[in-house]
């Protein structure tokens, strides 16, 4: 990791810890000046970006986080069976405007099923979901058209909302740029790499400015830089008031979310109590 990468990582860490934007810029600029003038390896001079960010937070504190808004998604008592197998039992989740919720659990525990039920794509055996406002959904894979260009995907999604072609294209390209992808090229979706195709998928889901955004492990195939951009973008959406639900199995990301729903069945009692509230206060 060179100095630039280190500074970028520090910026992300400060942002994640809700250090006020001006103060974070000032800290990063000072560190950059120090490295430029004094030279040396930032890992030796300042230590790991996480530790340095922690030290900064201890020193200058954090900006108060935006107060969570009204409830945007309320899923209550969701139970789903496939044949004799109960995939979900009494799962409950509440997400407010300006919150990120993570749905975690082992493979096959019903994370994607839960999200599809929240999106209204499949019906549960019991339970109900209440959504306030527009819903956006990004599937784990698929959900794009092989022979269409990215711009045509944006036009297609935009038309659903009554958005004209030009603005839809511009909005799509701008959203893609946030993930480090220039989407204006004439490349059909089938020729995109797995990661870029997921960026297209993710961009499509956020294009209609949804109030509730449901993401089913959307980062598959992302490289490290894109992965960081992805979480930055999620935080930006959260700060703008979007309620976000992310299915994830990457536990190290849980400290970046506000609520956790763990769907892992308990070893002895059958099921762990759902709707564990944890992570980010």
């Amino acid at each position: 990791m060179n100095s630039d990468d280190w500074l970028r990582a520090l910026t992300a860490e400060l942002h994640q810890r809700r250090v006020a934007a001006d103060a974070a810029r000032h800290v990063v600029a000072e560190a950059a000046t120090h490295l430029r003038e004094g030279g040396g390896n930032p890992w030796v001079v300042f230590g790991p970006p996480q530790d340095y960010a922690n030290a900064i937070v201890e020193s200058i504190g954090t900006a108060p986080g935006p107060r969570p808004g009204p409830v945007r998604l309320h899923a209550r008592g969701i139970t789903k069976r496939y044949g004799r197998q109960t995939v979900l039992r009494d799962a409950t989740l509440t997400v407010r405007a300006g919150q990120i919720a993570a749905v975690v659990g082992a493979n096959g525990c019903g994370k994607s099923t839960f999200l599809r039920i929240c999106a209204g794509l499949i019906s549960p055996d019991s339970g109900e979901v209440t959504v306030s406002g527009q819903l956006g959904y990004c599937p784990q894979s698929g959900g794009t058209a092989d022979f269409l260009l990215p711009d045509e995907h944006f036009v297609l999604v935009g038309a659903g909302q009554g958005v004209a072609r030009g603005p839809a294209r511009r909005a799509g390209r701008a959203a893609a740029r946030q993930l480090g992808w220039e989407a204006g090229g004439a490349v059909q979706a089938r020729h995109l790499s797995g990661g870029t195709r997921q960026k297209l998928n993710l961009t499509m889901s956020a294009l209609s400015n949804p109030d509730v955004l449901l993401l089913d492990e959307p980062y598959q195939g992302f490289d490290q830089g894109t992965y960081v951009n992805f979480w930055d973008q999620l935080r930006a959406l959260r700060d703008a008031g979007t309620a976000i639900v992310v299915v994830t199995h990457l536990l190290n990301q849980l400290d970046r979310v506000d609520t956790v729903l763990d769907l892992t069945p308990a070893q002895q009692s059958g099921w762990r109590t759902p709707g564990v509230q944890g992570g980010h206060p």
Binding site: P124, E128, V129, T130, V131, S132, G133
Partner: peptide
């Protein structure tokens, strides 16, 4: 179809 378990409310 719109599934019966999903209730849409306007943004409050």
């Amino acid at each position: 179809r719109r599934r019966r378990h999903l209730r849409h409310l306007p943004v409050g």
